[in-house]
Write a protein that binds this DNA or RNA. Sequence first.
DNA 1: CAAACTCCCTGTTAGC
DNA 2: TGCTAACAGGGAGTTT
Length: 270
Amino acid sequence: MPELPEVESTVRYLRKLLQGLRVAGVRIHWPRTIAKPSPTAFEQGLIGATIETISRRGKYVLISVSGPAGQLAWLIHLRMSGYLEVFDCAEPSRKHDRVVVTFAGGKELHFHDVRKFGRMWLVADAASVTQPLGAEPLDPSLSAEDFVKRIKSRRGRIKPLLLNQRVIAGIGNIYADESLWGARIHPLAAADTLPYQKLQALYHEIGAVLTRAIRMHGTDAGDRVVNGGRYKPRVYGREGKPCPRCKATIRKIVVGQRGTHYCPRCQPRR
DNA sequence: CAAACTCCCTGTTAGC
DNA sequence: TGCTAACAGGGAGTTT
């Protein structure tokens, strides 16, 4: 599932291939992919526009385009199973392609999304979509103190907090489990009672895990990611296998309706 | 405010 | 072999 590292990899990939191209056409195979505006308005707004900058906010791909109607923000969220692939020349739409954008010169961007949860927006201001997002975990301006403050100001268990995009943006189920394992924190720990040092460790662990995963182009956890990730999870998806640190058997529980993996020895409760 | 639940989706897998 | 049901999960929305 695409989380921050996978989205970041995708952004770097798109940046190399799409910058400066002019949109020639749009094929929408699954209209619900277009969250805003209507599919027709999306198509009309994009055609003739030029790709300027490509960046990331949380798990959103942000593409700024300039068209006859001025500056617009094209946002893409891959959700569960989406991925973006660029082709050098015309390519027929495949089975799970939901949106295909063609460019002058022949290149094409295919949005492939088996589960149909992925969404796109074309809006005047990206912030209208990304407004609710919390801090960027890799932004240098987010200090350990800020992070701890954000977490401590909330009640509730630590794992659902990490998954809450309004608190910290970009962390999904895999990297939440990986970070908590790294910081030796039990996923059910009450966030506001965790010692300062533990949360500081978590802050550093999140940065380290995400950075390492970006370097590996994300996780190879079944669902496909462009460029094929090589990040190997330590606990995620490793139920019943030995903890890489202490060899205890990794356990899987449900926290906030999400499968949660942890080491009962490294991450004791309380 | 927290947490549980429902919905959106389909490929994969377990069970029979 | 072939069927059905459970499951996975990001995020929005609703209910407890």
